[in-house]
Simulated assay, not measured.
Amino acid sequence: MDGATSNPELGSVIAGVDGSKPARQATLWAAAEAARRKRPLHIVYGADTDTRALFFSVESLERVRQAGRELLDSTAAAVTEQFPGLPVNTEFSRSAPVPSLHRSAGLHGTIVVGSRGAGGFNTLMLGSVGLKVAAGAKTPVIVVRGIDNGAESGVVLAAVRDEHDLDTTRYAAREAELRKGSLRLLHVWSILQSAGSVVSFLDDVKEIAGEHVHHLNAVADQVREEFPDLTVQVQAEKSTSVAGVLVEASHQTDLLVMGGRRSPSYLGRTLGHATHSLLHHAHCPVQLIARHQHEHGSGS
Rank of each mutant, 00 (worst) to 15 (best):
3 G>I: 06
5 T>S: 08
7 N>H: 08
10 L>G: 01
13 V>Q: 06
15 A>M: 04
19 G>R: 06
20 S>D: 08
20 S>G: 10
27 T>W: 00
31 A>R: 06
34 A>C: 13
36 R>S: 10
42 H>D: 02
45 Y>C: 12
46 G>Q: 00
47 A>N: 09
48 D>R: 01
51 T>P: 03
56 F>P: 13
57 S>V: 05
67 A>W: 05
73 D>T: 07
79 V>H: 01
83 F>A: 07
84 P>Q: 11
88 V>M: 07
92 F>L: 13
100 S>P: 15
102 H>Y: 07
112 V>N: 08
116 R>W: 08
117 G>V: 09
122 N>T: 11
132 K>P: 09
133 V>T: 15
139 T>K: 08
140 P>H: 07
141 V>G: 09
144 V>N: 04
145 R>N: 02
146 G>T: 00
148 D>C: 01
150 G>P: 06
151 A>E: 08
155 V>P: 00
156 V>L: 06
161 R>T: 12
163 E>Q: 10
164 H>N: 09
168 T>E: 03
174 R>Y: 05
175 E>L: 05
179 R>I: 06
179 R>L: 12
179 R>C: 05
180 K>I: 02
182 S>H: 10
192 L>S: 14
201 F>Y: 15
206 K>L: 14
209 A>Q: 14
210 G>S: 15
212 H>F: 11
217 N>Y: 03
219 V>T: 04
224 R>I: 01
226 E>I: 04
229 D>G: 14
233 Q>A: 11
233 Q>G: 11
235 Q>S: 14
236 A>N: 05
237 E>T: 10
240 T>H: 12
246 L>R: 02
249 A>E: 10
249 A>N: 02
249 A>K: 01
251 H>M: 02
251 H>L: 04
252 Q>T: 03
254 D>T: 10
262 R>N: 09
262 R>A: 06
263 S>I: 09
271 L>R: 03
274 A>P: 12
275 T>N: 15
276 H>C: 04
277 S>T: 14
293 Q>I: 07
295 E>F: 01
296 H>E: 15
299 G>F: 12
